[in-house]
């Protein structure tokens, strides 16, 4: 079932269009940086963007930092929101279920397919950014870590892979929320927008001091912790918490999706 869902994802034109769009902004940014040589002011702009002026091989990270706050979660919400509601809307859901496919397994397969999509998207963005960055911005033998120590290219490569993994896992929460909403409505758009509303609320609450007690539970709380992979030594605290939090989101929202979907009347 998981294989079938992966095939479906890969054979869908929308998957590739989305990935193409995700690449557009970082590439544009790289071109602008190469033309103007103007980095963002400290404390503003995405992480690593000022560092790539010195070393183009760091551009995959800057590219990920560019798509992480908005574009990637939007893509995830759209894909995950479509996963069950889209099948319901096209009518294929009833045929899957009388095939029969166990409803629980369908949910898990859908979530796995969404995560596979995220991984694919992130890897493609990083790869494209590496090529674009090295060609347009040049490279250096050694890079500086965020903490001011020296990183070898091998260390940068390993940490970039870790960052890709972490960012992929960071999207689990959004995916699970969108999947739950996707089982509640037959409209993929409504599910995606619902998940986005949740994310926007989370980002807003993160800036609010009054919401401090809530903050450790917000899905976007630890997203930027991928930067911690480039401190020296690596600062694991927030990364571990981030992964744990995403796991909790998956358990809770996939659980709710399961409770809702397995006893739901399929009338689409």
């Amino acid at each position: 079932m998981i294989r079938t869902e992966l095939v479906k994802t890969l054979r869908r034109p929308r998957t590739w269009v989305t990935i193409l769009l995700l690449n557009a902004l970082p590439t544009l940014v790289a071109v602008l940086l190469a033309l103007t040589d103007l980095g963002p002011r400290p404390g503003s702009g995405p992480a690593f963007l000022s560092a790539v002026l010195a070393d183009g091989t760091l551009f995959p990270l800057a590219a990920l930092a560019i798509i992480l706050p908005l574009f990637l979660p939007v893509a995830v919400a759209v894909v995950a929101g479509d996963s069950v509601a889209g099948e319901a809307q096209q009518g294929t859901l009833r045929y899957l279920l009388v095939r029969p496919v166990s409803r629980t397994r369908l949910l898990v397969a859908k979530l796995v397919a969404v995560i596979a999509f995220v991984l694919l998207a992130v890897v493609v963005v990083a790869a494209v950014a590496y090529v674009v960055g090295s060609v347009l911005l040049g490279d250096q033998a050694l890079a500086a870590s965020v903490s001011g120590t020296v990183l070898t290219p091998a260390q940068v490569a390993v940490r970039t892979l870790l960052a890709i993994g972490y960012i992929t896992l960071s999207m689990l929460g959004v995916a699970a929320i969108a999947l739950l909403l996707s089982t509640m409505t037959d409209s993929p758009l409504a599910a995606a927008l619902g998940a986005l509303a949740f994310l926007i609320a989370s980002s807003l609450l993160l800036t609010l001091d009054a919401a401090q007690t809530l903050q450790p539970y917000l899905p976007t709380r630890y997203w930027l912790a991928f930067v911690d992979l480039f401190r020296d030594p690596i600062f694991w605290r927030d990364i571990v918490r981030g992964i744990g939090l995403q796991a909790v989101y998956v358990v809770v929202f996939l659980g709710a999706a399961w409770a809702n979907f397995t006893t739901k009347d399929i009338t689409s």
């Binding site: 479906k8 054979r11 869908r12 034109p13 096209q90 009518g91 294929t92 009833r94 045929y95 009388v98 095939r99 029969p100």
Partner: peptide, 18 residues
């Protein structure tokens, strides 16, 4: 039992791009 049953429920449905 459902693998031994074939069904057409309320009109056909398929993935259009395939």
């Amino acid at each position: 039992v459902l693998p031994r049953v074939g069904a057409l429920v309320e009109g056909p449905a398929a993935y259009g791009h395939l």
